[in-house]
């Protein structure tokens, strides 16, 4: 079943002066439960594509459908709720809120929704993330790997349709990197979540179901590695 459809996306920075075409007519679709790796050199447009899918940056033209819904046809309010419930974003530099502890950072999307935290699900997540003993720690009391696990927890908390990770291991050593990828893969399998990861690391790309290569804002290769 198709969960994500990207249709002819173009993104132009600085229209008029010093125009930069970050994305140039990108189209592809992703099935539910698929693990997609996006690779490409610096400045190729990978991150822009991910942000447009995640609803945090608007395309200049083109359409994005998540679960059949036209993402950018929504109002600002609906878009915010979309980001909260349908997408989980993971960044290279974790982007945790320094004044909130682990528990609060992870449950932030639920709390923002004004809903009650599902303790059972949270405990399961904390177990998976091995953060059970660090619930009340502040981000600056955690190692890089732990911080990234917190941000994964935050991304998974709402059980989103699509998890988007922008070089999630870019700032971590190899041991921690493998641990994070295993975690992402585990949730991808267990909860049949769609996972899109941007990476420079070939070994990570090879673990995906499908690899998209981007160059100069265009998809130059779309390779299915395994079914």
């Amino acid at each position: 079943m198709e969960i994500l459809k990207v249709e002819n996306i173009t993104k132009i920075y600085n229209p008029n002066e010093n125009e930069v075409k970050a994305l140039n007519g990108v189209s592809f679709s992703v099935e539910r439960g698929e693990f997609v790796a996006i690779i490409g050199s610096s400045g190729s447009g990978k991150s822009t594509l991910l942000h447009i899918i995640g609803g945090v940056d608007r395309p200049t033209s083109g359409k994005v459908y998540v679960d059949g819904r036209d993402v950018y046809k929504q109002s600002e309010e609906e878009l915010a709720i979309f980001r909260r419930r349908q997408v989980g974003l993971i960044y290279q530099f974790f982007n945790l809120i320094p004044v909130l502890n682990v528990w609060e950072n992870i449950t932030l999307p639920v709390l923002m929704d004004g809903r009650k935290v599902n303790e059972e699900w949270l405990n399961e997540l904390l177990d998976i993330l091995k953060l059970q003993n660090r619930k009340s720690h502040l981000p600056n009391q955690l190692s890089g790997g732990q911080q990234q696990r917190v941000s994964i927890g935050r991304a998974l908390m709402n059980g989103p349709a699509v998890v988007l990770a922008d070089e999630p291991t870019g700032n971590l050593d190899s041991k921690n990197s493998q641990e994070i990828i295993s975690l992402l893969k585990y949730s991808n399998r267990k909860y049949n979540q769609t996972l899109i990861v941007i990476t420079h690391d070939e070994s990570i790309a090879l673990q995906a179901d499908r690899v998209l290569a981007i160059e100069d804002g265009k998809i130059i290769r779309d390779e299915r590695i395994r079914k």
Binding site: E77, A80, I81, R85, L89, I97, L108
Partner: peptide
């Protein structure tokens, strides 16, 4: 930055 972060994980303007 914090606001941007909150927005990216789904905080509305009103919030």
């Amino acid at each position: 930055k914090q606001f941007g972060l909150l927005t990216s994980i789904g905080a509305t303007k009103r919030q």
